[in-house]
Design a protein around this nucleic acid. Structure first.
Length: 280
DNA sequence: CTCCAGGTTCCGG
DNA sequence: CCGGAACATGGA
């Protein structure tokens, strides 16, 4: 099956730190969209796929996001231009809300490789097994499944102190104390506040969910990397810049597609910085 | 062996 | 509101 997708860089989209379970498969990628096992490969402006259906895939990969319009809102500055040149075609996907929320709860103070590992362990032990041809996949365990576990089971998935947070969040969601479905009607600030009622969910994780699952493209998650970039680029040789200042600056400076700008800066910085260290 | 990672929470100024 | 400290674990 084939889908037109001229402005898509699949490698960047699936391997830029917004989602953690996709793995390379020859010239393409294998993973799940929700419970659907999928294989994707991009060739000559078209997306070849197996598993699931065109509509689901186009929605997940956000092929409807108007990249040209988004890029036009990026501030014209060397750092932003470099990030855009590096990340052109990277799309902010629409992940299932719970899966996104849970993986980012486990992401606190962990490297991307570790986040992958925890996600994979949770899937293999508590998710559902599905297949595509001879390939095997495991869906992400639902909130109800996680809620029924105990803290020790989660610690055995290498979650460490995050186990308590994931468990509490799963139980709150399962009990209906926080609803991940009713966000559609809420403004960003209200949806964020709702998410932050969950144990282990602060401003950063809440913004990740708003951006990577809910399509709130103005949400700007500020982590150690983006904080580093913002401080170096926009507040050079300034002694103390608080998180609050960075947040207020981002909202004012990047505007309605701030989440896209942030992700491009994030991936560019993280990738080039690592390279710089490796060759040093 | 040391350092640090897509943070959050709790506590004292 | 702000700065510090505690919190687990593994890869570099």
């Amino acid at each position: 099956m084939i889908l037109d997708a001229p402005e898509l860089n699949l490698d960047l989209t699936l391997d830029c730190g917004q989602v953690f379970h996709w793995r390379r498969d020859g010239a393409g990628w294998c993973g799940l969209i929700g419970d659907d096992p999928v294989r994707l490969e991009w060739k000559g402006g078209r997306l070849h796929f197996q598993g699931s259906d065109a509509k689901t895939i186009a929605h997940y990969l956000a092929l409807d996001h108007p990249l040209d319009e988004i890029y036009a809102t990026f501030p014209r500055e060397p750092a932003m231009d470099a990030a855009l040149e590096f990340c052109r075609g990277l799309r902010i996907v629409r992940q299932p809300a719970w899966e996104c929320l849970a993986t980012f709860i486990t992401s606190a103070m962990k490297q991307v490789a570790h986040i992958r590992q925890m996600s994979e362990l949770l899937r293999q032990r508590y998710g559902g097994r599905v297949t595509l041809g001879r390939r095997e996949f495991f869906t992400y365990p639902t909130a109800a499944v996680v809620a029924a576990l105990d803290e020790n089971a989660l610690r055995e998935c290498k979650l460490g102190f995050r186990a308590k947070n994931l468990l509490a969040a799963a139980r709150s969601v399962t009990a209906g104390e926080v609803s991940l479905e009713k966000f559609a009607a809420l403004p960003d600030d209200d949806a964020r506040a709702e998410l932050m009622r969950l144990r282990g969910v602060g401003e950063k994780v809440a913004n990740c969910v708003l951006l990577f699952a809910c399509g709130r493209l103005a949400a700007v998650p500020i982590d150690v990397w983006i904080a580093r970039v913002l401080r170096e680029v926009y507040f050079p040789r300034k002694r103390k810049v608080t998180l609050r200042q960075l947040r207020d600056f981002s909202a004012a400076h990047f505007g309605e597609y701030g989440g896209y700008a942030q992700q491009y800066l994030f991936h560019h910085a993280r990738t080039t910085w690592k390279k710089g260290r490796a060759t040093k």
